[in-house]
């Protein structure tokens, strides 16, 4: 997911306060920024929302990679609008995190220093135009699985950001599938391009949900706090069940011979992704980790004079205004 393997923080708070807090959450109340919350809840949320925000921003890069090569004016406009939305989603999420007492600049620095992570998926390269289809269809499809239930998360600002994001995201997956349909119905080369993209993005998409967490204490705490709404395995199964028929419709083959409908469980059987690869990617050894952080670092460094220049001008204007009064 956009927030993977978020460790929940323990809380050393007064048990009575903790119990009252849990009761509010169980009753479906929203927790708002200035209300009392366990320190662990606050820290876990900063980590999770921050990671989610970073994923949106770093997620601009693999798709941004094709804006200048989009094959038609309309495709170029749609892709640009979509990547722009991702910047917007990052912005909403940073703002939600800021209500917890951390600044956007602090979060940015934590991303650049490697202290905070972003989703493993964005460390895979986009090599062909079909990857724009695959990313929209699979990656956004996987993200939506997680984001829709998060609209009901217990922290008010996070839930409200997710409502806005889900509303805007609704076209993202469709535009990806639309690209895939066009390619799948196109020339043999285009169809091969589409199949190749599915081959490369299938397992990394499954990894987005994170390793199985059925026995994880962190997960249990986050689920009790309603900042994680489903287990990783639940969401992964749901994603596979949704995606396999969509691939069939396209006439493409999911690159897993084990994929088979299982009548008994009412879902598809499928192979686990290579978790060793996943942990390497998380550690920084994915194909594009270095480039992604370099790009964000460059934007941050190169933009410093611009941000400072505008602050200086605003300060001058304020001084002039005070002097005139």
């Amino acid at each position: 997911m956009y927030a993977q393997m978020v460790k929940s923080e323990a809380s050393n708070d007064d048990p009575a306060l903790l119990a009252a807090f849990q009761a509010r959450i169980d009753a479906g109340e929203k927790i708002e920024p200035k209300e009392w919350m366990p320190e662990g809840y606050r820290k876990t949320l900063i980590r999770q929302i921050g990671q989610h925000a970073h994923s949106e921003i770093v997620g601009q890069l693999p798709e941004g990679n094709w804006i200048t090569r989009a094959p038609t004016l309309e495709r170029k406009a749609i892709l640009l609008a979509k990547v722009q939305d991702e910047a917007g989603h990052g912005l909403y999420l940073y703002c939600a995190a800021e209500t917890l007492g951390v600044s956007r600049d602090e979060l940015t620095e934590a991303l650049l220093s490697g202290k905070m992570k972003y989703s493993s998926i964005f460390n895979y390269p986009t090599l062909t135009w079909a990857d724009m289809g695959a990313v929209g269809w699979l990656v956004d499809g996987a993200a939506i699985m997680n984001q829709v239930p998060l609209q009901r998360t217990s922290f008010g600002p996070y839930a409200r950001a997710m409502v806005r994001i889900c509303k805007e995201e609704s076209f993202h997956q469709r535009q990806g599938y639309d690209i895939m349909m066009k390619l799948a119905q196109g020339t043999p080369e285009q169809k091969a391009m589409a199949q190749d993209a599915l081959n490369r993005f299938w397992y990394p998409s499954l990894m987005m949900f994170g390793p199985s967490d059925k026995d994880s204490v962190h997960s249990a705490q986050s689920m009790a706090w309603k900042i994680k709404m489903n287990t990783n395995d639940e969401l992964r199964q749901k994603f596979v069940d949704q995606t396999v028929p969509q691939a069939e419709y396209l006439g493409l083959t999911v690159p897993d011979p084990a994929v088979k409908w299982n009548e008994e469980k009412g879902g598809y059987d499928f192979s686990e992704p290579d978790w060793a690869e996943f942990f390497e990617v998380i550690k920084g050894n994915g194909p594009c980790n270095a480039e992604r952080i370099e790009a964000r670092q460059k934007a941050w460094d190169d933009g410093a004079w611009f941000r400072d220049g505008l602050m200086a001008h605003a300060a001058k204007q304020r001084t002039a205004k005070v002097a005139a009064e």
């Binding site: 804006i67 722009q84 940073y94 933009g303 941000r307």
Partner: peptide, 22 residues
């Protein structure tokens, strides 16, 4: 202008420039 998408100095500007390009 679209070449800037994802690389602007601050998110608000990234979004504004994309609007111009669009």
């Amino acid at each position: 202008v679209s070449e800037w998408c994802g690389h602007a100095p601050v998110l608000e500007e990234d979004i504004a420039l994309a609007n111009v390009a669009l």
